[in-house]
Amino acid sequence: MSSLLDSVYLLLQESASPMHPKELATALIQRGMWSSKGKTPDATVGARIYCDIKKHGDQSRFIKAAEGFFTLNPNVKVELPDPGKNAGKAVKRKQPEKSAGSYSFSDCAEKILLHFSGNAPMHYRDITSKALELGWLKTEGLTPEASMYAQILTEIQRREKQGKIPRFEKLGNGMVGLTIWKSTGLERHIDSFNDKQRKVLMERMMQLNPQDFEELITTLLSKMGFSEVSRTPYGGDGGVDVRGIMTVHDVIHIKLAVQAKRWKANVQSPVVQQLRGSLGTDERGLIVTTSNFSRGARDEARRTSSHTPIDLIDGDQLVSLLVEYNLGVRKNRYQLLELTPSFFSDEEEI
């Protein structure tokens, strides 16, 4: 088994945002990546990360992103030893190549703000410029700055609709910051409460019988703007539970065949193949599940050469969509007053 810090490193690689030691400890134990007999495993995780940063300084693979939160050091590339091989040997730290990989606009913005802003807001043009310079952003568009700002604002609006704390904060005059820099205890408490409600929402979905679950998916698609949405006869659907039509600007009409899986186990590739074989003429497939998809299922869904691609919605995405479209939940809005420094300056807030 790899060391505790190696496991933390792997988790942070998967994470789209910094994590608190409590989140890390919970995920490590749940996934069997680490075990602890102590009463405060999160304190153990946090102490080990702090010690690594203190020992290695700028060459530590971890950095402190905000008070109590950690992320990976972008200036250090780590080669982890193979499990069971070279056990006990120190990990190798290398300087990363500039264009080690590319990310989405919003992920680029978060990484730039975490690692190059000094915990201070940046203008979206500067964020875009730095992302392009590092090779983290790959785009053929003629206006990457406008695309960057539009995607940041769109994500803020979408996460608010889903009852989540946005990653970004719009500060006016094109300036963007991260919410983790100024999140209050109240905001974190609300976020924690909402996470618990999401889990309850999932539990209630799991208690539905198959027909009621299909009816829920039918209602969700209708709320999302699909037309002519209807369930197929139960038991003789040939792998298709719901059909509908997605219309774009009254010009493009896409027929959709949906399979709804109220499962605990991951959906495997044969399910994707079955749905693809059941598609009618000009139909596109969609699988919605309360669980997740195996790697084989995701690979099969992405196959496009002479195959119709299949879209996938996993359990986390399904819960977010239910929250966004107010199905099974309602949003209560409480006003939290914050001062606006720009109000007392000569700058015009946009």
Rank of each mutant, 00 (worst) to 15 (best):
296 G>Y: 01
35 S>C: 03
218 T>C: 13
104 S>I: 06
122 M>T: 02
110 E>A: 14
211 Q>E: 14
34 W>A: 03
23 E>H: 07
184 T>E: 13
81 P>S: 14
30 Q>P: 03
168 F>T: 01
149 Y>K: 13
89 K>V: 00
135 G>Q: 04
178 L>N: 07
14 E>T: 05
158 R>G: 05
221 L>N: 03
114 L>W: 00
347 E>V: 08
31 R>H: 11
267 V>S: 01
183 S>Y: 00
198 R>Y: 01
235 G>M: 04
243 R>W: 07
347 E>L: 08
12 L>K: 08
219 T>N: 05
194 N>D: 12
200 V>Q: 15
271 V>L: 02
42 D>S: 09
316 D>K: 09
319 V>W: 07
239 G>A: 01
310 I>W: 14
156 I>W: 08
202 M>V: 06
267 V>W: 01
70 F>Q: 03
32 G>F: 08
256 L>H: 08
123 H>A: 09
211 Q>Y: 15
191 D>V: 06
107 D>M: 08
92 K>N: 10
213 F>E: 13
212 D>G: 07
166 P>Q: 10
81 P>N: 12
84 G>I: 06
143 T>W: 03
69 F>C: 07
138 K>P: 03
350 I>S: 09
66 A>W: 06
133 E>F: 12
47 A>R: 14
198 R>I: 03
269 S>R: 02
123 H>K: 06
229 V>T: 04
175 M>H: 13
239 G>F: 02
43 A>H: 04
348 E>H: 06
115 H>K: 06
279 L>N: 11
72 L>K: 11
116 F>L: 03
60 S>G: 10
176 V>S: 07
1 M>L: 08
215 E>T: 14
59 Q>V: 10
214 E>S: 15
202 M>N: 15
145 E>T: 07
306 S>T: 15
228 E>C: 11
216 L>P: 12
342 S>Q: 06
50 Y>L: 11
66 A>V: 04
138 K>L: 05
208 L>Y: 12
15 S>T: 14
342 S>I: 13
263 W>N: 10
142 L>T: 13
291 S>C: 05
94 K>D: 13
36 S>I: 02
246 M>E: 09
132 L>V: 03
46 G>R: 07
13 Q>T: 10
275 L>Q: 01
83 P>Y: 06
287 I>V: 14
90 A>H: 05
147 S>E: 11
341 P>G: 06
238 G>P: 15
156 I>D: 09
